[in-house]
Nucleic acid binder design. Structure first.
Lengths: 339, 339
DNA sequence: CTCGGCCGTGCAAGCGCTTGCGTGAACGCC
DNA sequence: GGCGTTCACGCAAGCGCTTGCACGGCCGAG
């Protein structure tokens, strides 16, 4: 901090010739203040370039007006979308966000959650919470509402339904005649965790497969390091049940998978069909354009944020918090064909 | 906050049978404390799940141990890289980051900067600062060190040299026989701002062009909305000086540009050559693989953070803070060819 | 003209922590 | 064995703000 001396509320009060409490009141728009007094204070505030200290305010008022958002991996563009949705909604209600990048590393995530605890966030939004259910306990105990994206399955009354897209995609693949498929997922190879969402997807695959009377393999390939992608793919293609359709589990996964396909000199869709979860802005621009399972992350961010606001006692947009999210959908573009 | 009652330092002190100040001291590892006292306190801390209040700490100590990072646009993967570099460096010195997404919107950025002021960040890292020089003043006045990525030009003694890559790329293009080129940049069409970095690139282009005795056009196309890309490109190609090489100004720009190229049914590199600034993970996986100007954002993040630490009086890794960043480089892959 | 009520403001006690100063006990020294 | 040091800790005064309460002045009602 060196010699930084900040203007305080007392300075403003002195400049305006009033009591500090009055300044506080205009700051918070709380009690009635005479217009001219208010004007004097506001002028002083501006003139002195006063910025109230968040620390002092929240210490005194026991409110921080912040919510933490823990993203598993900021390098995933869908999370950025999600974030903006949440941010818009929360800012409209005067809350600000502490964004943190989990970097797919449980240690980092734990550290960040501890920081949230110290910061006294009033609410928490987490995605892929399955990796940290234990870490979330302190929040629940402290009465801090946690809004997890992960647990929103239709059978739990949550607004999320992510099965329609999967189902449509795999019906399409099996109808085309594919038998063996491989799903590449972004997970640390040393500690693979199967999210509920992933399980739900696998169920959708099984269902589509059964509908078509197919008995092929569904390989699930956890990829931590992009460099692993090509070797894993090569091994798969050399083995029994070589997949003819490759599915990228998310935005992050897609580029490495395409890189591997390229490295092996495979043509899309002639040699392999490709489907990607998440309609990254690259997907449509790829050659050929990628068939994707698209999902509206922005809306999900808004919905989670609204639900949080409701739990915080802020009468947020009730409709947004209660509404079911639009289901995901399959977009066929050009990367899927008869095997 | 509802009925959330947090454990305080006083609670811990009572449980451990000591004075609050002693607890504070073990918390900060400051003064000498007898091992058994320390142990008792630590046990109580754990048992009570005590998490010190950041607000109270920073109010009392006049230190927040935080630095703000303002990114122009989180949806740009290179910024994520940058962020991780900075985060690693700062966390090693006990600072934590407040990340904020400027969303390419000056209003949002101003709001976030004000928040930083209230949060009493001890330092600030900004990129593309050219859009907000005015907004940065309060920080400078308050004695808060600001580390702007933007201003690091070699002629200012900063560590950044982003000319080598541009130069190599355009020498390559002009040598191949290209005459007219177009650079697509991500800017709000209504308020285009020419960054120093952009100017520096344009200079490199001019230099390469002169070296090759070419007198073709260099179109600069600001794109705010991805949907504008195709029409702008179509118009350009229909006009005089139709470009034969298209350059995407950054990671964000690349996908829309490729989408537009695709929409117009142009073959790469037969009809147009493509060069992208920023080696996105998609670039190598594209078909054909994209020639790019690659830059190490992670290292830039580390360097800026180190410089900030030095200015904060933390004897950070002096080498890292002083070192010149590796220059960017041109990687020819397959999207550039004879026009 | 008196009085209750409200309005605008001041007063002061904290919020949970840090930190300079003070003090008793244990220690080493001559 | 007395005395100065050091050690380990207690004490209390804040940090910059909020907020319940008090209080004087003005109003309208009786």
């Amino acid at each position: 901090m060196a010699e930084t001396h900040h203007v305080t509320l007392a300075d403003v009060a002195r400049a305006a010739g009033v009591n500090p409490s009055t300044v506080s009141r205009v700051l918070n728009g709380r009690a009635p203040v005479r217009p001219d007094t208010r004007a004097r204070i506001e002028a002083a505030t501006r003139r002195l370039r006063y910025h109230p200290s968040r620390s002092a305010r929240s210490l005194a008022s026991a409110r921080t007006w912040t919510v933490g958002v823990l993203l598993p991996d900021l390098a995933n563009l869908m999370h950025t979308e999600f974030l903006r949705g949440a941010q818009r909604t929360l800012q409209a209600r005067n809350f600000s966000l502490f964004i943190c990048d989990g970097q797919l590393d449980p240690a980092v995530q734990e550290a960040e959650l501890t920081r949230f605890l110290e910061l006294r966030v009033e609410g928490l939004i987490v995605t892929r919470s399955f990796t940290l259910t234990g870490l979330l306990e302190p929040f629940v105990e402290a009465g801090i509402p946690v809004e997890p994206a992960e647990l929103f399955e239709p059978d739990e009354g949550g607004p999320r339904d992510r099965r329609a897209g999967s189902l449509a995609a795999f019906r399409h693949l099996y109808a085309l005649g594919h038998r063996d498929v491989a799903v590449f997922v972004h997970e640390r190879a040393d500690a693979p965790v199967r999210s509920r969402e992933m399980r739900s997807r696998l169920e959708s695959i099984a269902r589509a497969r059964d509908e078509h009377g197919v008995r092929g393999a569904v390989h699930v390939v956890p990829i931590g390091d992009p460099a692993d992608c090509a070797p894993r793919l090569r091994a798969l293609l050399a083995g029994d049940d070589a997949p003819t359709a490759l599915i990228a589990g998310n935005d992050w996964m897609t580029a490495p998978l395409l890189g591997a396909v390229q490295e092996l000199g495979l043509a899309i869709p002639e040699d392999v069909s490709i489907v990607a979860y998440g309609d990254s802005r690259w997907a449509a621009a790829y050659r050929p354009p990628l068939s994707v399972i698209r999902y509206d992350y922005h809306e999900e961010g808004e919905t989670l944020a609204s639900r949080l606001l409701v739990r915080l006692g802020e009468a947020a947009d009730a409709a947004a918090s209660a509404r079911g999210l639009v289901p995901d959908e399959f977009l066929e573009r050009g990367s899927t064909a008869v095997p």
